[in-house]
Nucleic acid binder design. Structure first.
Lengths: 140, 140
DNA sequence: GTGTAAGTTTACGTAAACGTAAAGATGATA
DNA sequence: TATCATCTTTACGTTTACGTAAACTTACAC
């Protein structure tokens, strides 16, 4: 069986964030750990949430955006038609943004490859120059 | 032939950013427009730079990061071996980050699809309920 | 000339996402 | 029992990326 509860340090070291950040996310209403005394106890649900928050950040989501998505998602079963339509709209919006990102990444990858090639040949050029200097200094 | 110079407003409306932002990028050393009197004139080089800056932002680059990449890139021809090695390292780093992003996007796309399905069926459920109510009120 | 529209500099303001320090509570350990 | 180590709250500080307002110049339109 996998672990079911986590300390704040567990999560902090697993995902390489500070405890300050994790508490901040709670402050902003994205996490809701239970307490044992005054100490925070995180469920594996909380852990998943944190993972989603961090992935969102890597993709440029603000905390407010992630929070909004969580809330829409949590209300899905039993939500009103209007809420569901808002969720659908958000999903469509995010999907489009991801398409844009895929484009951006593809283009940047091409450019990085070309930059790498240019960089390599510049380095090669330097090596050749060096050899030439050595040959002049030390002609056979 | 395509346009070779641009006003700050040209660029602002083409890329949908404020002139304030464009001036800020110059302030931070990412753009270097020439002047006609005191008015800024942007070359198509500058335009490309701006495009790169904005794409970088969409991919989570800070302005400082973009600036660093520009500077390394500009020094590539005639750069020292050490500079070239730094560039190569940066390129490798960015490529890895892009791989991570591709992973993140792929996973998020899957989740969005599944969320969309759940959302759709919740909406379908609401419609069915509505029909049932109507049938009760209006039995044939 | 007189707006007025778009450009400029200067400078203070702001939101987001934490960093960091202070000061106290709690539990394990020597 | 004393001392850590780790948790907590509170609160002010900081960086990034601009927003916004003020006060000024320049270029056409009337």
């Amino acid at each position: 069986m996998s672990k079911t509860t986590f300390s704040i340090r567990d999560l902090a070291s697993e995902f390489d964030v500070t405890t300050r950040s994790i508490r901040f996310y709670e402050d902003q209403g994205l996490l809701f750990p239970t307490r044992k005394g005054q100490t925070r106890i995180y469920s594996s649900q909380d852990r998943v949430r944190l993972k989603l928050i961090l992935r969102g950040k890597r993709l440029g989501f603000s905390l407010a955006e992630s929070k909004e998505l969580f809330e829409l998602w949590d209300q899905t079963p039993g939500g009103s038609m209007k809420q569901l339509e808002r969720l659908q709209a958000k999903i469509t919006e995010k999907k489009q943004a991801l398409e844009q990102q895929l484009n951006d990444i593809a283009m940047l990858q091409i450019e990085l490859d070309s930059a790498e090639a240019r960089c390599q040949s510049a380095m090669q050029e330097l090596l050749v120059q060096k050899e030439n200097v050595l040959q002049e200094q030390n002609p056979k």
